[in-house]
Amino acid sequence: MRLSRRRVRGVVDKELRDLRRNSNVVYTMLVLPLIFLVQPVVEVLTLSAHSAAVLRREHTLTYLLAIPTLVPAALAAYAIVGERLQGTLEPLLSTPVQRRELILGKALAVFLPSLAVAYVVFALFVIIVELFSAAGVAGALLRTPYVLAQVIFTPLLATWSIWLGMVISARFADPRAATQVAILVSLPTVAITSLIAFNVIPANLRVALGFGVGLLVLNRIGWRVATAVFDRERLITGSR
């Protein structure tokens, strides 16, 4: 059966309206990125001009990829369990919305603000580096391949985290537990980006391509799994 754009848009609009008024979730969205912004900003701003050459051998920017990994995981983890908690899931599932439409709508409603936050934080980082770092530091740090990687991997990582969060959200009954577990299962991805940032995994085109293709495949699988685990009966009655 075809997907209805209007139903997907209805879910997205509702989620975004609700998100704007949910201060707890907004704080989570803002605090996590700020934590991950502080360390690289401090590191870069304390570098002297003659240390800039060191940056050419490091991949500090990759560290910021933790933001599009963790923020959507936390948001997506609330997506379904939150509806159960509020008692809104049953009326929602009583409508003609298909589970693919619901999952897609909820995923988009997490994807869009997460992407916005990740890009805004990255832009903030670039502005701080350009304005306040020592001479030569910005040029050494903000190299085109790394900026490009940031732009390309941000949506791929965010999507992967959303599917993880959705699967957990559909399986858990307690939103706090769901959020904690979603962040926990996102840590291996953060570990990979951190290992690249700290030069343990070499940052080259082959690794980037492999990482990119791997994420595309995982995202395809993630969409299928997230849709499959969304079982109306189990979500409504708690048993099947």
């Binding site: 209007r6 139903r7 848009r9 209805g10 879910v11 609009d13 509702k14 309206r17 609700d18 008024r21 949910n22 509020q86 008692g87 809104t88 899931l89 049953e90 009326p91 929602l92 409508t95």
Partner: peptide, 17 residues
């Protein structure tokens, strides 16, 4: 099972979609 943080109209708009 209403969305408490949304207005009456917004609740209905979601279901109308």
């Amino acid at each position: 099972g209403l969305y408490q943080r949304l207005s009456v109209r917004d609740n209905l708009a979601c279901f109308a979609d």
